[in-house]
C-alpha cells in the first residue's frame, strides 16, 4: 500500500483531470484507472463564469482525495501564493508544487522549487515537489521538509517515458524510505510498468490518458501496467546477463548427433 503524508492508498496511479474530451469521459476514466487521488488546479474566473463552480461540484461528487497543483507558476512568490489559494479552495494541505524554469521543456526551476518548498513546509503544507532526478536537489527538498518526491520521467505531456532510468534508479537507491512518484512524461502503460519495476511507489499521469483515442480504455491499461510493475518489483526480477543461458536443462538430453 502506498502512503503519502500518512494517507494510505491502494491504487498506485494518480491521475490528472485536464484535457479530457468531456466531463463524462473524465469520470469514466477516473473510475477505470482506480485512482484514489486526482490532481486539480485553479484558474481565473469571471463574475459571470460558472466553469469553476461546476468543476468543484464534479470533484466533490467523486469523493476522492484531491492534489491541487501550482501549474504554470514561474516564480517562488507566484507558487507560494497559488498554494495558499489552493489550500483554501480545496481544503487540503496537500500541494503538488511546480515552479517552472524553462518554457520549452517545462523543466522545474529546482532552485525556486527548494525555496518554495521550504516556505510551504514551514507553513504546514504537505508538499509533493515536481522535480528532476537530481540527487542533490532531492536531498535539499527532503531537508526542506518534503516527505514525498516526484521526479519527472520526461517533459510534461511529451510521452517520452523514462528519459533517465539510471538517474531514477539512483534516486530510489538513495532514498529507500521516501515515497517516490514518477510524475510527467509517461506516454504508454509500459512506461508506468517500467517506473514501478524500478521500485517507485506510484506514477502520476494525465495527458497519456486524456489524449488517448479511448481515454477510458487507456486508463484501465495504465492501471493494469502499474499493478503489474509493482508486482514484478516485489517478485524481484532476475539480473540481465550478457550471454545466453538455456532455459531447458541439458541433463538427460537424447544423444542424437553423429
Amino acid at each position: 500500500m502506498a502512503s503519502f503524508y500518512g494517507i494510505d492508498l491502494k491504487s498506485r496511479l494518480l491521475l490528472g483531470t485536464a484535457r479530457y474530451p468531456s466531463p463524462a469521459v473524465l469520470e469514466r476514466a477516473i473510475k477505470a484507472s482506480g485512482a484514489e487521488v486526482v490532481t486539480v488546479s485553479l484558474r481565473r474566473e469571471s463574475g459571470t463564469g460558472r466553469a469553476g463552480q461546476s468543476f468543484w461540484s464534479f470533484i466533490q461528487a467523486l469523493g476522492l482525495k484531491v492534489l491541487p497543483n501550482t501549474a504554470g507558476c514561474h516564480s517562488v512568490k507566484e507558487a507560494v501564493t497559488t498554494a495558499h489559494m489552493a489550500r483554501e479552495l480545496f481544503d487540503t494541505n496537500w500541494i503538488k508544487l511546480e515552479v517552472i524554469g524553462e518554457a520549452d521543456t517545462l523543466q522545474p526551476d529546482v532552485f525556486g522549487l527548494v525555496e518554495a518548498a521550504r516556505i510551504l513546509c514551514e507553513e504546514g503544507f504537505e508538499v509533493f515537489p515536481y522535480t528532476t532526478e537530481d540527487l542533490v536537489v532531492a536531498d535539499r527538498l527532503v531537508e526542506a521538509g518534503c516527505k514525498v518526491l516526484m521526479p519527472w520521467g520526461a517533459p510534461i505531456g511529451s510521452a517520452r517515458g523514462l528519459n533517465n532510468v539510471y538517474g531514477l534508479r539512483s534516486l530510489r537507491a538513495h532514498f529507500p524510505d521516501i515515497p517516490l512518484v514518477v510524475d510527467a512524461g509517461l506516454g504508454v502503460p509500459s512506461h508506468a510498468a517500467a517506473a514501478m519495476e524500478l521500485g517507485y511507489d506510484a506514477v502520476l499521469l494525465n495527458t497519456a490518458v486524456a489524449e488517448a483515442g479511448d481515454p477510458v480504455e487507456m486508463a484501465r491499461a495504465f492501471a493494469l501496467a502499474t499493478e503489474a510493475g509493482r508486482a514484478a518489483y516485489l517478485a524481484r526480477p532476475m539480473e540481465p546477463r550478457d550471454m545466453a543461458v538455456p532455459s531447458t536443462p541439458l541433463i538427460g538430453k537424447a544423444a542424437l548427433g553423429d
Partner: peptide, 10 residues
Amino acid sequence: IEVVAPMQGG
C-alpha cells in the same frame, strides 16, 4: 485583484 476558482489540472 485576482479571483480564481477550481479547474482541471495535471
